[in-house]
Design a protein around this nucleic acid. Structure first.
Lengths: 145, 145
DNA sequence: CATACTGTATTAAATGTATTAATACAGTTA
DNA sequence: TAACTGTATTAATACATTTAATACAGTATG
């Protein structure tokens, strides 16, 4: 039995997120927030399937070279917002998508609202904003390759 | 002569920003960043005219109940990004709009790009994004009243 | 039952940033 | 000279983040 992760990041019976989560130490946001965001995206885009086990707190901490407390904090936030659920002693598991997806939509729309409010207050017009958004969408689609 | 601000926030010969800058202590961003953003908006929307004097570091600090160092930090950032210019011993003054406006457009578009990248990674489609943006624009226009 | 895994909780220490406070200095203006 | 400008520096304080070291309870398995 392999109790420690091997080079592929796969552990006995439990899929792990090898290489999918990269911490950016230049990012001003705290690490636990970056972990939250990456896991949310993996859940929402289907990389982690509903009811499949999340990596354990300690394993993910090892894998990312972080303290277990940091991962714990992220997991608790994910549970509070409906992305995962926990069974005592067994582990944390991916929730059904519906609730999580709605939360993410609200979160993104809130961010857009803030940016757009700032833009309007700074004298940027609605049409300018629409052009910007189209450029951003194009750039974002190009990145997906 | 009135050396201290009166109730209207107007000081001898120097327009002040009375009431236009509200610090939100629930905001996670540092105070100096909030001050920067509000002053940028006031400059870009024409509330502060080019070549008119900015409130002095010490006056604005008094008015907002902040330490002069905090205002100084904001002013130095505004100078580095072309929003204001400084004459030693005389004060700081509003710059011409062109450079500042371009910087703000780039800043806003950068924010939009980040939000839109996140949205696409979370499985939100381009058309959903366009609908969100339209709702945000409508909401933002409604707020202007 | 023992072992090794799960999540959870707690306390302490270290670090970095933001903010305030208290000064000081140089240039401008009246 | 007096009172204002911006600027610089140092110290003290506060706060959030992160790490570290434990401990406890529930689950699964041999």
């Amino acid at each position: 039995m392999a109790y420690k992760n091997d080079a592929t990041g796969i552990t006995e019976g439990r899929e792990v997120t090898n290489g999918m989560i990269l911490i950016d130490y230049k990012d001003r946001r705290p690490i636990y927030e970056q972990v939250i965001e990456k896991l949310q995206q993996m859940i929402l885009c289907g990389a982690l399937e509903p009811h499949s086990p999340m990596p354990s707190v300690r394993n993910l901490a090892m894998e990312l070279s972080l303290n277990p407390n940091t991962i714990q904090r992220a997991y608790q936030a994910l549970e509070h917002t409906g992305y995962i659920y926990t069974i005592k002693g067994k582990g944390s598991f991916v929730s059904e998508l519906s609730a999580a997806a709605d939360n993410k939509r609200r979160e993104i729309e809130g961010e857009l609202q803030k940016s757009i409010d700032k833009a309007m207050l700074s004298g940027i017009t609605a049409d300018e904003l629409r052009q910007m958004v189209e450029r951003c969408i194009t750039a974002s689609e190009r990145e997906k390759l």
